[in-house]
Design a protein around this nucleic acid. Sequence first.
DNA 1: GCGCTGACGGAGC
DNA 2: TGCTCCGCCAGCG
Length: 100
Amino acid sequence: MSDFDFVGSVIEVVESIPPGKVMPYGEVAAAVGSRAPRAVGRVMALYGEDLPWWRVIRASGRPPQCHEDQALPHYEEEGTPLVKSADGYRINLRLARHRP
DNA sequence: GCGCTGACGGAGC
DNA sequence: TGCTCCGCCAGCG
């Protein structure tokens, strides 16, 4: 697996996430056979423009920092289980977590 | 070839 | 429940 295309695999996994579901960075990294959730975030920052990046969130149940406001409308549109929090809102990983 | 940074995760307090 | 510290890997100068 040395030819392993990290970026390509990450993009493939993110696009495989169905609407209304989400997947933590750690899960995406594990899905591509890696342990670098940070690297996944980098891919989103670079290629996220062509991907449903809002379906990829942190293990804390919150979307990428500085992007929560942009992700919110997407969740409401896809019917993603949300939980209102003191800070604003949060994703209900219990219901929204996508399992391959 | 080396070091720093980053849309993070988990454990500890 | 929220914040802090350390560790992880991949990309770039």
